[in-house]
Design a protein around this nucleic acid. Sequence first.
DNA 1: GCCGTTTTCGGCCCGACTGTTTTCAGTCG
Length: 575
Amino acid sequence: MADINKKDVIKLLEDIAVLLELKAENPFKIQAYRKAAQILETDQRSLREFDDLTKINGIGAKTAATIQDYIENGYSETLQALQKQVPEGLIPLLDLPGLGGKKLSKLYHELDVIDITSLEEACQNEKVSALKGFGKKTEENILKAIQDYKKQPERLPVDDMLKVSKQVESYLDSIEAIDRYSIAGSMRRLRETVKDLDFIISTKDFDTVRKALIEMPNIKEIIANGQTKISIIITWDYDVSIDFRLVEDHQFATTLHHFTGSKDHNVAMRQRAKAQGKKISEYGVLDIETGDIETFESEEDFFQSFGLTYIPPERREADGELDRFEEAVDLVESSMIKGDLHMHTTWSDGAESLEDMAQFVTDKGYHYMAVTDHSKFLRVAHGLNEKRLRDQIKEIERVRQLYPDLTIFSGIEMDILPDGTLDFDDTVLAELDFVIASIHSSFNQTEDQIMYRLNQAMENPYVHMIAHPTGRIIGKREGYAVDVDKLITKAKETKTILELNANPKRLDLNSVWLKKAQEKGVKIAINTDAHRKSNLDFINEGVKMARKGWLNPDSVINTYSVDQLKSVLKEKKNR
DNA sequence: GCCGTTTTCGGCCCGACTGTTTTCAGTCG
């Protein structure tokens, strides 16, 4: 038997769906393959643990046989047959806005379009506009889509989009005719990369708002300008597309829910509605029997009408939330956070003094903080040597007197050196309250080397936490070769805390690993790694990511009181 | 292709906008 795993099978089903789409097959047939792939993705079990695939709702005899054939032979006849019928170069063309399976299929069959080059030529020679169902405008739009496709990445990192989003929000704040508005879409769900921004706006004066929106600064192009929907592209570092939906206020909650998605979450909600004799649209919930349309003051009320507790946006990913949220789920919330255990000051590469950081943390209502500047190995960040570290401890002692209600842990973000040794001796570490170990060098080492370094750090009785465990920078850098499963196992064994670094560039660990860590009983700290005052607000993104990973307050040590936290830190040394 | 307290056919989530039409198909979210 060939060595096929579940990911391979999911990819097979998705590939089949794409090829069927290009054949302009029945959309429901295509959907059936996509659904089967998603069901496997969501299911906890590995491929070997399924005894009979057809028992799963959504996988029938045909799909099960296709999967079986693939597992046994190592290739799929179904897939190969389709691949013979569809040129490979057509597949990426589906990403061009305005082109779907049906149009592409027609372009292929009637104009021999097989890839982006032949499509561009067909447009330039005005063959496309001559086709029935196509016109001059479509031809122009395809050409423009090709230009854009060549120069722009498909999705942008959430950190970049957060900045654009804030800019748009401050513009919306200036429009008086707007009653209320909210970001929606994948930005609201805090996906790691975001394709475009969606805003829902309620108003009594559609015309005024619409006029104001299309006068927003930096607009490059207006894509759609309808009664209730305005789509624009604004120029930032990249071009960013933004959709605005205008609604009357009583429709706000259902519209917001609708455009927050995810798409699959909405499908699941509508299926649930249907089973209850109701029909969901963005304008409300229709009772099929009476014909009444119900609207809601808030999303809470909306969920409640379906027998559900409030599902936060970042949890709406169609991975079992509808069942789980029939009862209230105990998830961590921003208001539960009592301290931040990773931040920098002017002693290394931070922008604020130690005393100022104590003030800012106090302003946030926290009970404790850890001062964790870089260690000496990190010269570029002006890392602390033993002497400066001891001087800093004295400064911490001074600031403690000024803030008697705040517990300040003396700490360090200590480098794990390329050879696996630590930047400080145990005698130095023993003088500190909170020791973070992290990797900032030799990212290209093999998995064995990286794991050796991390293991050395976790084995050390004075190391409390591993920071940004994978080192990834979203959309920019992969991170080092960590086997996170092994890392989690080792963290459990050594009672080492793992960080959820809340900086939106990092969000490290991500939700998938957080979920696993919690299942294994590993404690997590949500930290901002603040280098300046405003960075302390990253805690909100951190908490969202934590909830995406289903983290409950008990798994998150900075929801603990000072005393509880201290006893957790003690466990490490005493293990 | 999948499913069934509509159970082997007929529906599968719903609506806005654009472009090409002259009543609607395709795409998108």
